[in-house]
Computed example of a mutant assay.
Amino acid sequence: MPALTIGGVLAALADEFDGITSSKVRFWESQGLIQPRRTASGYRQYFAADVERIRLICRLQQTRHLPLDAIRSYLDDLDRGLEVELPSNQPPRVPQFSLETEHPAGRAMLAAKRLRLSRNELCQAAQISARFLTELGEFSLVDSSKEQYDEDDVVIAGTARVLAGHGIEPRHLKRFKTVAETDAGLIEGAVGSLLARKTAAAQAEAGSRSSEIAAACAQLHGVLLNARLDRLLRS
């Protein structure tokens, strides 16, 4: 969907919500419920995600009859990647880490947006204790002093928990970060000339090539590890 003006948004939603007005949409913006982009000259631009968010707000008001504070809280939970159901007296749920749902590159969190979890929510999602999180921080695997955590932190903490169940403690895992930093250096060297151009096309190509190289590195690590294990089990 191309960018819409506020008039275009009203036209798109007119058949479904006849009570929506430009002043109401701007009020929601002033309350932080929506955040349309702005052009260089200050004009608001609404895209498909903005229209869907406004549609959701309208439904929560007209169908669920929720007050503004409840809508704000609901949207904030959604934005942070939590699992929320309405109407419900239950608190929002954090997504649960499961090694079985991981794809080979180790990214299983299914949320389309990046998570923003508190320290306690991270511990719930990764099924770890606060003490274990502190230990991960001691070995620079997760920054345990942060105020908010994303799905990378959940995957790292959850995977560390699984390994700890096999006797492989966080202190043994620092080498994984060292390898990752080495691989990142290789990728930076491969795409550095593209990044230096500072154009949108070059940045996009650098991102595509970085992802391809990272996937190849992950696959190579996995194949080499499995080959070594095969030799070990056959010896």
Rank of each mutant, 00 (worst) to 15 (best):
A3M: 02
A3G: 15
T5L: 14
T5K: 14
I6F: 05
V9Q: 06
L10G: 00
L10A: 01
A11K: 13
A11L: 09
A12R: 01
A12M: 00
E16K: 05
G19T: 08
S22A: 14
S22H: 11
S23V: 01
K24Y: 03
F27S: 11
L33S: 01
I34C: 01
Q35A: 08
Q35W: 08
P36W: 00
R37T: 10
R38V: 00
R38I: 01
R38H: 12
T39K: 14
S41W: 11
R44S: 03
Q45W: 02
Q45Y: 03
Y46A: 10
F47Y: 11
V51N: 05
R55G: 10
L56E: 04
R59T: 02
Q62A: 14
T63S: 15
R64I: 05
R64C: 12
P67Q: 10
D69I: 01
D69A: 12
D69V: 01
D69C: 07
D69W: 10
R72A: 14
R72D: 08
S73P: 02
L78V: 06
E83A: 08
E83Y: 00
E83T: 07
V84L: 04
E85L: 10
E85P: 00
V94H: 07
E100H: 10
P104K: 02
G106C: 05
R107D: 02
A112S: 13
A112K: 14
A112I: 12
R114E: 13
R114A: 11
R114W: 07
S118Y: 12
N120K: 13
C123S: 07
A126I: 04
Q127R: 11
Q127V: 05
I128L: 11
S129E: 13
A130M: 10
F132Y: 06
T134I: 05
E135G: 07
E135R: 13
E135V: 09
L136K: 01
G137D: 03
G137P: 01
F139Y: 14
S145R: 15
K146I: 09
Q148F: 15
Q148G: 06
Q148S: 11
E151Q: 06
E151L: 03
V155A: 04
I156G: 02
A160E: 04
V162R: 02
G165L: 13
H166Q: 05
H166G: 05
G167N: 08
G167V: 01
I168G: 11
K174A: 04
K174R: 14
K174C: 01
K174S: 04
R175K: 14
F176S: 05
T178I: 09
V179F: 14
G185L: 05
L186T: 06
L186F: 15
L186R: 15
I187Y: 15
E188D: 15
G189E: 13
G192E: 11
S193M: 05
S193Q: 11
L195F: 04
R197K: 10
A200K: 08
A201C: 04
A201G: 02
Q203M: 07
G207I: 07
G207R: 04
S208N: 11
S208L: 14
S211T: 14
E212W: 08
I213C: 05
C217F: 15
A218T: 07
V223W: 12
L224V: 15
L225P: 06
A227C: 06
R228N: 13
R228Q: 12
D230L: 10
R231K: 13
L232K: 12
L232C: 09
R234I: 00
